[in-house]
Structure formats: C-alpha cells, structure tokens
C-alpha cells in the first residue's frame, strides 16, 4: 500500500499544501534544523529521526499539522534489525522515486546508474521520506492527537505502538520503528522515532521544551 500511496512523491512534494497559510514564525529553516540535530545528536538514547510538525490554519480555519523540518540520523546497527527486507519490486520502486527526487533537487535528469541510489533504501529512510508528504488535520494521526490533547505520547515497544489507533504508528511499526514519541508544543509537535525500545525520559522532554521554545 505504501507503494501505491507514494507513486507520485515528487509531485506531492511540489504541490502539497499550496493553499496553506503560515503562522507568524519565530524561527527559520536553518535554526529548526539545528535544534533537531542538537536534540538527536546530543541525546543519550539512539533516535533514528526527529521531525517538527508545524501547526498552521488553512483558509477555512482548520488547524493543520504539516511538515516543518526533519533530521534523519539512521540506525545504529542495521544488522540488529529483525524486520523482513523489502521485496525487490519495492526496492526498485524506492530507488526510482529517489532518482526522481535527486533530479528534482539537482536539476539534472534522473539516471538509472546513480551510485547513491543503487544502495538499498532502508525502511526507516523510506518512512522518513514519506513523512514529508503527510499532514494531519483536526487531531488526526499521532502528532495531531498529541497536539489537540496537549499531552505527550510515548510508545515504547511494538506492543504499545500497535495498540495505538493511529495509522502512522502502525505504519512506523511496519517499517521497523520500535519507539515513537510525540511532544506537543505551542506551535507544533516534535516527533521522535527509534528502531530501539526507549522508555520515557523526563530529560528528553525538558530538552525538547527548551530547544523548541521559539519565542526565546
């Protein structure tokens, strides 16, 4: 189903959310990236990625959580992973999309012999890429749920992730993520994911709140 949903990832990245209003921002893309990187690289735990979902209001007054920025670190040790390798067809699809995205960014026509694309596109890389096309309306999805309830969500381990009613959590589990965290803030949500089981950390929660206190 992921293949079907993401057949046109390139177009989606170009066109999605064109009608969305931006809230007044106290940050820019560069500082956001630095904050995400600081959070992940400075953490004691091994996080695979961090995403900032930014809240905004569309023309009809609906609150939307959309992609703000993300930092992908990757897995510490891919050999420890116990997920089933994706099929050859799925890998071909991912590589094709990656070539198109490379072409979109570089402006150079896609080539079937692109070295960096020949490397397997891992499940967590793909999950991170697909996340760029997603948004959550009116409390939908794991980030939306955290934002609307103003309560952090911490799902350590497969059982906890699978017990979530949110599709994003189930999708994450399918792609090998074993911990998902969503921390709501005034103007968005910080989401963290890991292929390892990581239990609740007050230190991390505080770090997020300090790092993403944009008005300071």
């Amino acid at each position: 189903s992921t293949t079907t949903h993401n057949n046109d990832l390139t177009k989606t990245l170009n066109n999605q959310q064109q009608q969305q209003h931006q809230p007044s921002m106290f940050f820019n893309q560069e500082t956001l990236q630095q904050r995400l990187q600081t959070l992940i690289e400075g953490a004691r735990e091994s996080w695979t990625y961090a995403i900032f979902w930014q809240s905004s209001v569309d023309m009809s007054g609906v609150t939307i959580l959309g992609w703000g920025d993300g930092y992908y670190k990757g897995e510490e040790d891919k050999l420890k992973r116990k997920t089933t390798p994706s099929s050859a067809i799925e890998q071909e699809h991912r590589k094709k999309v990656l070539r198109e995205l490379n072409s979109l960014i570089s402006g150079v026509p896609a080539s079937s012999s692109d070295d960096q694309v020949d490397e397997e596109v891992t499940d967590t890389e793909w999950f991170f890429l697909v996340s760029m096309t997603q948004s959550f309306v009116n409390g939908g999805g794991l980030p939306g749920h955290a934002f609307y309830s103003s309560v952090p969500i911490w799902l350590p381990g497969n059982d906890r992730i699978l017990s979530s009613p949110c599709d994003r959590a189930k999708q994450a589990q399918l792609f090998g993520l074993q911990t998902m965290v969503c921390i709501p803030l005034a103007n968005g949500v910080v989401e963290l994911g890991s292929t390892e089981v990581i239990f609740h950390s007050l230190d991390l929660m505080n770090k997020v709140r300090v790092l993403f206190n944009f008005s300071s």
């Binding site: 959309g66 992609w67 920025d69 490379n102």
Partner: peptide, 26 residues
C-alpha cells in the same frame, strides 16, 4: 504559502546530501 514546498525541498535536499555521504562512507 510558497514557503511550505520550499521547506520540504530544503529538508529533502539535506536528506539526499547526507545519504550520499553515508553511502560514500559505507
């Protein structure tokens, strides 16, 4: 409104660049 696709493209460009580095050092 154009800021959103631009933000995504910036994220994507960064992701692809870092992936390139990871592949080269693998």
């Amino acid at each position: 409104p154009a800021a959103v696709p631009q933000a995504r493209k910036a994220s994507l460009a960064r992701f692809l660049e870092k992936r390139k580095e990871r592949v080269m050092h693998a």
